[in-house]
Structures are given as C-alpha cells and as structure tokens.
Amino acid sequence: MSDSFASARPLEQTVFDEWPANVRALFDGSALRDKAGFTASLLSVDANGHVRTSLLSVGELYAPDSRTLCVALWPQARATRAIAQSGRAALSFVWDAAFYQVQLRVAPLPGVDGDDSGLVYLLGSIDTAEAQSVRYARLTSGIMFELQGEESAVLERWERQVERLKRAAAASSR
C-alpha cells in the first residue's frame, strides 16, 4: 500500500470510559427543543440472538455524571425485554462529526416517583466506548427526525421524562 493511499484514509478512533464533554452536554437534559431531531440507536440482543433496536431522542436519555446514562423506554419494546434479559446494550449515534458506539451495562433505575407514563427507566454504565471519524469526510448526521403536529406536547413529555430520570439518578447515587 502506498503512503499516499494510507494517508488518504486516516481513521481517528478514540476509546473512552467517560463521556466526552460535548456528548455529556448533549445528554445533560437541558435545551431539549434545540436538540430535537437527534436520534440515538439503542441496540440489544434477545435470547434468540436477534438484534433489537430502539430509536431514542434526547427526551429519553440523561447523563447524570461522566460514566452513566439513564434511559426511558416503552415497556412493550422488544429492546426493553432484551435488555432486561441480558443487562447489556449498545448506544450508537452521530454527534459533532463523529460516530459513537457505547457499550453499556444496564440495570433497572429505581426511584422514579410520580410517573404515570408507563415508561421503564434504566441506568446504564459505560463498559467500553469509542468515537470514530475520518479526515476526508465529515459526518453531518445519523438518524434524524422532525417533530410534527404535537411538538409542544412532545417537548413537555420529554421535560417530564428527563426530570424523572434526573430525580431517579440522584436517588440512586446516594
């Protein structure tokens, strides 16, 4: 392989076990309206070996500290059942021109008070994680969405969900 070919494909890979500052800011539970459209893919493997995916917004994710991630999922989602069986999941997303994949150890998050949403709340801790980018191409988005019709109601629901995640995360760290 020629040197010019090798330099044309320089993969930049960063391994981490704590959220980088830019990602922690993404999952800090603030300015949800400004972050609407962001989508992360939560992957898990069920007992039959099938990969299950839940697409999540910033209204379903909250990082209370540098090593954890709280997640709100619908109980009927196949990924929810798969995570309950295995205690593991991977979160994949594109942010700030990089592709992230975070391997999580996941457990139920106790202490969610006043919740009538029916959601299941989980606490994930980073097992291993990496970010990848290349110099010759800038990732501009991953899976994105646009709120339609009920934007205010969705944003209000997200605010309530993230507040519950924050309270539960605070209670679990005591």
Rank of each mutant, 00 (worst) to 15 (best):
D46Q: 11
A79K: 12
W158Q: 07
F38A: 05
L165D: 04
A82L: 03
V15K: 13
A170W: 10
T128D: 09
G118L: 05
A170Q: 14
Q148P: 00
R164V: 06
R33K: 15
G114W: 00
R174L: 12
W95K: 03
Q148T: 05
T68L: 01
S173F: 04
K35F: 03
P75T: 10
A6V: 14
A98M: 04
G111Y: 07
D34Q: 15
D127L: 02
A77C: 03
E130M: 08
D46P: 09
V154P: 04
S2C: 10
D127N: 05
A40V: 11
A97H: 09
S125C: 09
T80A: 10
A21P: 07
R164P: 02
R105F: 01
A137E: 00
V45H: 13
G118H: 05
L61W: 02
S41P: 07
S172E: 14
S2K: 10
D17M: 12
C70V: 05
W95M: 03
V134E: 07
E156P: 01
W158F: 06
A6P: 00
D3C: 03
A97G: 06
A89V: 08
T68M: 02
S66H: 09
A129C: 07
D113V: 06
P108Y: 03
A72W: 04
S117N: 09
A72K: 05
M1D: 12
L104Y: 01
E12W: 05
P20V: 09
A98C: 06
E159M: 10
A98W: 01
Y121V: 08
G124Y: 04
T128S: 14
L56I: 11
A169C: 06
L26F: 06
S86Q: 15
V94Q: 01
L42R: 15
L104M: 01
S152E: 09
L61H: 05
L155Y: 07
F27I: 05
Q85R: 11
R167D: 09
L155G: 09
F5N: 13
V106P: 00
S141K: 05
P110T: 13
V120A: 11
V134Q: 15
S66W: 01
D113Y: 02
R167W: 00
A21Q: 14
E163W: 03
T39D: 04
I143G: 00
P110I: 05
A90N: 10
E60V: 08
R167G: 01
P64K: 06
A89I: 13
